[in-house]
């Protein structure tokens, strides 16, 4: 049987915290988080709905045969959800949108989604929703299939509420997306229920178990997209983000072949982001790992690197 072509990883938004436009960041782009996994099939797979989702919205006409969209939501902070009210596909007849998302603070994603459309906050007329919407709750460590073909596994990372990293496999194409994630060291327990779990096992044991599980989750995944919002000099651990050093440490232990650094800080200009990659590559080369800056509108075939 003929093998399918590799899926394509498409970066539509690579900025963290908030979208930002300056003349000095247009190379890497200023839109907040949105990634697409293009399997070439008649459905679209999107990770997060930051402002980068506008590229998907504006390209709606390019793939008229695609009538189903699966959106994996890592968590519900603004930079990951702010474009959902502007999703014009909501108004498309004979269209299905499946949201796969964790709850936040005991509130379902469906309820949080509704808040984005609140009268008096939405700057546009409420969309005339004609698409069929499906809300699938994703729990930490969940594993499920999209369209019976794309395997998705979740992993709760160290960030506020339940924030999920996703490992996505389609035939030989495998990628993991680790969104906002902080080091768990020194009792920096940000994830929902992490403090309770640490209480029962002991903080040190919990931290070790979490770190081991994260490496296990990424083990031999050829392509990993990882939060590198901070650098070693400006790291604020309790803000819930990582650095290139943290990303490389985890990924080298997991024998990752290709690390995409993303969730660039809004304050970083193109030069800062380029320097970040240059410094990281020097270290990564020793681990036989390629380090690449995620850049808006770049596309990468998900080969085994």
């Amino acid at each position: 049987m003929k093998k399918a072509a590799p899926a394509i990883l498409k970066f539509h938004g690579v900025r963290g915290s908030r979208p930002v436009h300056t003349p000095f960041n247009t190379n890497y782009g200023g839109n907040s988080t949105c990634i697409e996994i293009d399997t070439g099939m008649d459905y679209t797979i999107i990770i997060d709905g930051g402002s980068g989702l506008q590229h998907v919205i504006n390209n709606l006409g390019e793939h008229p045969q695609r009538r189903r969209m699966h959106i994996l939501v890592t968590h519900t902070h603004w930079d990951h959800v702010l474009m959902f009210p502007f999703l014009q596909q909501l108004e498309c007849k004979n269209f299905e949108i499946h949201f796969h998302a964790p709850d936040a603070g005991g509130v379902s994603f469906k309820d949080i989604f509704a808040k984005l459309f609140k009268h008096g906050r939405l700057p546009i007329p409420a969309p005339n929703v004609q698409a069929k919407l499906f809300f699938h709750k994703v729990t930490p460590d969940a594993a499920f299939l999209i369209e019976g073909k794309v395997k998705v596994v979740g992993f709760q990372v160290n960030h506020q509420h339940i924030t999920l990293g996703y490992r996505i496999s389609y035939e030989d194409s495998i990628v993991a997306v680790i969104p906002d994630i902080a080091s768990i060291s020194n009792g920096n327990l940000l994830g929902e229920s992490f403090a309770e779990q640490a209480k029962s096992t002991g903080t040190e044991a919990f931290e070790k178990q979490y770190n081991d599980n994260l490496v296990k989750f990424l083990k031999d995944v050829p392509n990993v997209v990882f939060d590198t919002h901070f650098n070693a000099q400006n790291l604020k651990a309790d803000w819930g983000h990582a650095t290139p050093e943290i990303a490389m440490d985890v990924c080298s232990r997991a024998r990752v072949k290709r690390l995409f650094m993303f969730h660039h800080a809004p304050e970083e200009n193109d030069q800062d982001v380029a320097t970040k990659q240059m410094l990281a590559q020097r270290v990564a080369i020793a681990n036989d790992m390629q380090v690449i800056n995620a850049r808006e509108e770049d596309e990468w075939p998900l080969t085994a690197a």
Binding site: H21, T26, N31, Q54
Partner: peptide
């Protein structure tokens, strides 16, 4: 208005 639009087309 409406939503941010960072883009090379808007430099």
């Amino acid at each position: 208005a409406f939503h941010p639009a960072p883009s090379r087309k808007n430099i």
